[in-house]
Design a protein around this nucleic acid. Structure first.
Lengths: 259, 259
DNA sequence: CAGTGGTCTAGACCACTGA
DNA sequence: CAGTGGTCTAGACCACTGC
């Protein structure tokens, strides 16, 4: 049974077919895919969709394409989809790990100047604050401090929703909240006394800090968060090549404020 | 005078023209580019190159494209090209800052097991070790500990080359060394006594650690490095959207070894 | 030097957006 | 509902790779 919907665009179906074939070892790392001409014949199509499909695989980092020879399968480090960069739960699941969480704070408060600035709202507006200790395979890994604007965060008080059970993001999506754009600012920080107590480390220990801002398609900020990761457990990996610069990645001097 | 070479592909010239027009404010953020049909007429070409050019701008994060309306110009955070992720000098220059460096160590040593493993060479082979204190606009910012394989690093001993003056990477490139693929592992670490003395901070302070591995097109590792950034001065920014996942970016539990 | 991918043309039909 | 972008076809010429 094909994984792809029958009404998906042809180039998507071709890309999926090739991706599956690679995953199943039919084209091992280092080998070459069939030539465009072969694929054109195989799928009974013209050159456009075939090239588009190969371009998808190239953008995913699965193949390298150069003139004169067919696409070569390369060792592939999976790219995290958007959800994985924003949702701890989906990140853990995509890695085959068991995500866990303990909600320490879930409350509605009035936005102070910092929060209002980060969310682009007025001081005093109601916001929902969430603090959760996140773990993976049972081991504490990260302390998440999150602030949602009211009309997004209100869904966290839905009767029957247990923030310790499911993914907040999955719940918000199911509630019709569209999370579209994510921005992450990454640096290091020293563990506060609260960090230290909850993560069971010494105050002042280095932590990997990821400050997240998530917005909808229109650019309205829905959430701002400050995540503190245990550095022994987490590392961010970036790969790029000279001819395919990583899109949307930058290293900035001095922390700019949230966009 | 057009910035683009006259013999560049048409779609590149179209993309450059549009990029320039956006930069010059002819299409402010939020406005829409001309429709494909208009551009087709304007450049006297068919639809292919026009679409390809728009795709380049979309991949760069400069425009958003959706059905039913022309491409919309979006607020754009510049993406760092490959060189900027690998070369401190070019990173600083791309930001309009003044890079500086003080070379503390430049020596040829025999690879121990760790180094040999990271570079994919035999224990005991000669490698070139470089330690530099990097600064920006005169302020110390990062401590760089770098190991090059012999045939790349040997160029650092070229008579007349001053590691305190120019960029090592620019020098290597000029010497015919091709740096193609970069991998970066990012986490936090505590300042060692040496870190602390050189960066003028307290031992144990949090530092942003970036471990880099740079390889050529064939996958042979040329350099492995361990950079310690002052966290107050540096932050890594990642942006992505639901329909354009950042390519080649991943968040991994537990530091895997160098690829 | 045969075969490969890179680029381009000139058409076509369709789904969707925005006034 | 007119115009937009999304997809596809069927050709073409060229630069380059690898045998």
């Amino acid at each position: 049974m094909p994984r792809t919907a029958a009404d998906a665009p042809l180039y998507v179906r071709i890309a999926d077919a090739l991706r599956d074939a690679i995953a199943q070892g039919r084209y091992p790392v280092g080998s070459r895919l069939p030539s465009e001409a072969t694929l054109r014949a195989e799928f009974g199509t013209s050159r456009g969709p075939v090239r588009q499909a190969l371009d998808v695989l190239r953008a995913e980092g699965r193949v390298e394409i150069a003139r004169g020879a067919a696409a070569r399968v390369v060792d592939h480090v999976p790219t995290q989809p958007f959800e994985s960069l924003v949702s701890f739960t989906e990140w853990a699941q995509s890695l085959g790990r068991e995500p866990g969480q303990r909600t320490l704070v879930l409350e509605r408060v009035a936005a102070d100047a910092d929060i209002a600035g980060a969310l682009g709202i007025e001081v005093g507006e109601g916001v929902i604050r969430v603090v959760r200790l996140r773990s993976m395979d049972g081991a504490p890994m990260m302390l998440e401090r999150s602030i949602f604007v009211a009309d997004a965060g209100q869904h966290l008080f839905t009767p029957g929703f247990d923030p310790d059970a499911g993914s907040i993001y999955q719940h918000l999506r199911a509630s019709g909240i569209e999370l579209y754009r994510g921005r992450h600012l990454i640096d290091a920080t020293a563990a506060s006394d609260e960090d230290a107590a909850l993560l069971d480390i010494t105050p002042g220990s280095p932590l990997l800090r990821v400050r997240r801002t998530v917005a909808d398609r229109a650019g309205r900020v829905l959430e701002t968060a400050d995540d503190h990761y245990l550095p022994e457990l987490t590392v961010i990996s970036i790969q790029n090549t000279a001819d395919r610069p990583t899109s949307s990645l930058s290293l900035l001097p001095h922390a700019p404020l949230i966009a």
